[in-house]
Write a protein that binds this DNA or RNA. Structure first.
Length: 579
RNA sequence: CGGGGCGUAGCUCAGUCUGGCAGAGCGCUGCUUUUGGGAAGCAGAGGCCCUCGGUUCGAAUCCGAGCGCCCCGACCA
């Protein structure tokens, strides 16, 4: 490709609405352009990167035995009513109507459509296992798009769906996809950490995310420093340590003026946060539109309630925290709440941490009063005891019991789910087994965000001069800069010849034939970030050389003009092998 | 949806407080000089100052409403 013909323009200044450095560079280098909040165009350079990522995914999916299809983005709302997700997905689901007032949605994911499709063609156990995939545009009406390409309303996703007869078979299909994902991320030059995850609105019996660690990420993950345990904070488990083996002391009511927070309370009593019990009130909003149920959740004072865990414990309800006024109107005392003598007012859900702890200070359910020496089982009880606390840094790993968990930020690149029979059940899809019995197939589903790989890869290679792409997804293998192209006939001839030779040898070249000042062309080459840069100039030409600069090794070398093509092919091979 | 910031040339922004000719740099067009790390000069083109309403002799500027973009939070396969 000739730079003189390339659509898109590099910008000298930082775009005002880009927050992260990598996203700012993608805009400055002319890879993407924003149409509106959460919606982007891909310009020729960005589009090449996108297509290369897709082809790596396609290649690995095909190798794993998955078959590519393409399903519609436009779907009948009725299918979503059938699965129950028109209610659970809520406002994220883009809805519209056609000219005959038929209710439609723009697909945010395709479990319903693929299951419906399966039901039309699969009737026998002989047809399974089967894995289908597509690379397609998804639509989600996100409340707040952010982070450039990280959270957007329209995006390209590879989504795959496996169907098996048994859970064991599902595990095999799942593992195949897991392995395939590791290869995909590795080939794209994006390091990821697989973590246990919450399955959210997809549902199912367990899922894993592939997280790209980044300060710009919106997910937090916990990793053990001793064993291989890693999990999304929404899911991460940890050991509750017993801080006290002491015997239960007598319950006392003590005056604690103005101690409405755990910090104030423990400071005024001279105790540690973990010697208190924290009570947080929620309203559980059932999906079926029934009336709200008050939930009193209790954790040890040094911990926080995980709303995701709490919601899961209660069967996936939506939770709404209560404001101070609302608490008062229910007869509760904000800042001084506990489950002691309050079990009748709300369903009490207690974290494991408060079950074994002894003699905690808990709210007195009366302004300016607390209970001292409250103990679970004696002074109060919960209808549910479960893991509803969020991991804190330094917590003990539940997996190996000896390691400590650390927390890091990251972006979810992919998510794989053991979904089970939820959708086959909802849509009535069955196959016959060898004895003629009806079997409901079990499903796995597997997603990768193409745009997120794009964003992550751009962030990995970034340096002070611009982008730096992994060779596998770089828009071009190399930039060819011809100094004096506009003036010097012999430079022109030589650069054109080299361009032709490289192209014919299968090397992808972005040829800067604009004849601008050297600094402009060098800076643009750096900004765009193709891994190798070639320079043809009078100076090099006199020596019979071409200058080769490798953005990964940071080496600048001079290669004989005759052997340039072979040399470049070799450097490209080395870069590919390093991935 | 709550909180904050912003909206003026293609881009980055000044001008708004204190109402009075629509501005700069970059980019773009033409010419001249220049050519190994974002050159210089000369001459140009380019504007619904986000929108609507109000105040005023007069509004980019003040007031009101709305819309859009970004950030924090809520939310989020």
């Amino acid at each position: 490709m000739r730079m003189s013909q390339l659509f898109g323009k590099t910008l000298r200044e930082q775009p005002s609405d880009a927050d992260t450095e990598s996203h700012a560079l993608l805009i400055r280098a002319g890879f993407v352009s924003q149409l509106m909040s959460g919606v982007y165009s891909f310009l020729p350079l960005g589009n090449r990167v996108r297509l290369k990522i897709e082809n790596i995914i396609r290649n690995e999916m095909d190798s794993a035995g998955a078959q590519e299809i393409l399903m519609p983005a436009l779907q009948p709302l009725q299918l979503w009513d059938q699965s129950g997700r028109s209610a659970t997905m809520g406002e994220v689901l883009f809805q519209l109507t056609d000219r005959r007032s038929r209710a439609l949605v723009l697909g945010p994911t395709h479990e319903e459509v693929v299951t419906d499709l399966l039901g039309k063609f699969i009737f026998s156990y002989r047809d399974l296992p089967l894995t289908l995939y597509q690379i397609q545009t998804k639509f989600r009406d996100e409340a707040r798009p952010r982070g450039g390409l990280v959270r957007v309303k329209e995006f390209t996703m590879k989504d795959a769906y496996s169907f098996d007869l048994t859970d064991d078979d599902l595990s095999t299909s799942y593992q195949t996809m897991f392995d395939s994902y590791e290869k995909i991320f590795s080939r794209c030059g994006v390091p990821v950490v697989p973590v246990d995850a919450d399955s959210g609105a997809i549902g199912g019996k367990g899922s894993q995310e592939f997280i790209f660690l980044s300060e710009n990420g919106e997910d937090t993950i916990a990793q053990c420093d001793n064993c291989s345990y890693a999990a999304n904070l929404e899911k991460a488990e940890f050991l509750r340590e017993n801080f006290s083996e002491e015997p239960m002391l007598g319950l006392e009511k003590i005056e604690t003026p103005n101690s409405t927070t755990i910090a104030e309370l423990s400071a005024s009593l001279g105790i540690e946060n973990r010697q208190t019990a924290k009570a947080v009130m929620y309203m559980a909003i059932p999906h079926n539109g029934g009336s709200e149920i008050p939930i009193l959740s209790i954790v040890r004072g040094d911990l926080e309630i995980s709303e995701v865990k709490l919601s899961n414990v209660l069967g996936g309800v939506n939770l709404r925290p209560l404001g101070e006024d609302e608490l008062l109107s229910l007869g509760l005392t904000p800042g001084f709440m506990s489950a002691v003598q309050l079990e009748s007012l709300a369903q009490v859900v207690a974290d494991e941490s408060v079950i074994t702890a002894r003699n905690l200070v808990a709210g007195g359910n009366q302004k300016d009063w607390h209970y001292k020496n409250s103990n679970y089982g004696r002074d109060w009880e919960a209808s549910i005891t479960a893991d509803i606390a969020e991991v804190i840094a330094g917590a003990r790993c539940r997996c190996c019991s000896s390691g400590e968990l650390s927390l890091s930020r990251g972006v979810e690149m992919g998510h794989i789910f053991r979904v089970g029979q939820r959708y086959s059940d909802a849509l009535g899809v069955v196959v016959q087994d060898s004895t003629g019995n009806s079997i409901t197939p079990t499903m796995g589903c597997y997603g990768i965000g193409v745009g997120r790989i794009f964003a992550a890869a751009s962030e990995v290679g970034i340096n002070e001069n611009g982008l730096r792409w992994p060779i596998s997804i770089a828009p071009y293998h190399c930039s060819l800069v011809a100094l004096g192209f506009d003036k010097d006939e012999s430079i022109r001839e030589d650069a054109e010849l080299l361009y032709r030779e490289l192209t014919e040898a299968g090397v992808e070249v972005l040829f800067d034939d604009r004849g601008l000042r050297p600094g402009v062309m060098f800076n643009d080459a750096d900004l765009i970030g193709n891994p190798i840069r070639l320079t043809v100039s009078t100076r090099n030409q006199k020596e019979g050389m071409v200058e080769v600069s490798n953005r990964y090794s940071d080496e600048i070398s001079h290669v004989a003009r005759d052997s340039t093509v072979n040399h470049i092919k070799e450097e490209i091979k080395v870069l590919f092998d390093a991935l």
